[in-house]
């Protein structure tokens, strides 16, 4: 008697689980052509794997840089000439964005407003909005900026491939958080200036994006973790 009750229960539970799974899967792949679907999984798995490789390579790079740095510091206490170079190196590392930055600042959040109950939308490219926001923050006197924890340096580019954003060669996507260390009042003054970011503010007022500027204290922006790749240029 007990066994049939369990069986009855299972007979309901199993299809319900499968159905739940199917509903959710269908939801996220709605309106995709069959041909495209076939390639999505292997390709996106490769993207995820390469992004993982990149994180590991960056860690290796950081470790070797750390060893070189240690060696150099040990050597700089022994040699006055190396010591003098070392203080210039330390200063330039800060200037170049290779050191973590801390201080007051502004956090900008940007996301697509999600219409309730609708399925996945066409991917939207946020790269121009991100570069406009970053431009405004530099203009307001920011000294260090990161987009979703990716520090912006002299080699940084921000572009999109479909709806995926690539910053410093690393991929990310909405929602975005831009952390800008610098004088909050003057950064906010530029961001809030009517003449700036007109297009983006119009879309915020139309409720197609959410955009917020928040004053922050004790903000922390990570150091740049990518390659320096200086091969052709030499200082004079």
């Amino acid at each position: 008697m007990q066994r049939t009750a369990v069986q009855k229960g299972l007979a309901l539970v199993t299809p319900a689980l499968v159905f739940g799974f199917l509903v959710a899967t269908q939801w996220t792949t709605l309106a995709r052509p069959d041909v495209a679907i076939r390639y999505i999984d292997p390709l996106s798995d490769t993207v995820t794997r390469l992004q993982g490789d990149q994180a590991a390579l960056r860690q290796q790079l950081a470790s070797i840089r750390g060893q070189l740095d240690q060696l150099q510091r040990a050597s700089s206490t022994q040699s006055g000439a190396v010591g003098a170079l070392q203080s210039q190196i330390d200063d330039l590392r800060v200037q170049a964005g290779l050191a973590e930055a801390h201080g007051d600042g502004v956090v900008i959040t940007l996301d697509a407003a999600r219409p309730t109950g609708s399925a996945a939308k066409e991917p939207f490219c946020f790269a121009p909005d991100l570069t406009d926001l970053v431009n405004a923050a530099w203009r307001g006197g920011a000294s260090a900026i990161a987009i979703n924890n990716e520090r912006l340096v002299s080699s940084s580019s921000v572009y999109c491939v479909g709806g995926t954003i690539v910053v410093n060669g690393s991929i990310t996507s909405a929602p975005f958080s831009i952390s800008a260390v610098g004088p909050p009042a003057s950064i906010l003054a530029v961001l809030d200036d009517e003449a700036q970011l007109r297009d983006l503010k119009k879309r915020r007022d139309d409720r197609s994006v959410t955009l917020q500027f928040t004053r922050a204290t004790t903000l922390s922006v990570p150091a740049y973790r990518g390659a320096l790749a200086v091969r052709q240029a030499t200082p004079r």
Binding site: D53, A120, P175
Partner: peptide, 25 residues
């Protein structure tokens, strides 16, 4: 953060991301 977006990309976009990530790596 990005894996949801990846599922919505076209095969062409994913192929471009793979090429760019390969370059960077």
């Amino acid at each position: 953060v990005y894996s949801r977006t990846l599922q919505q990309e076209t095969p062409e976009s994913l192929a471009r991301l793979i090429a760019d990530l390969n370059d960077r790596d």
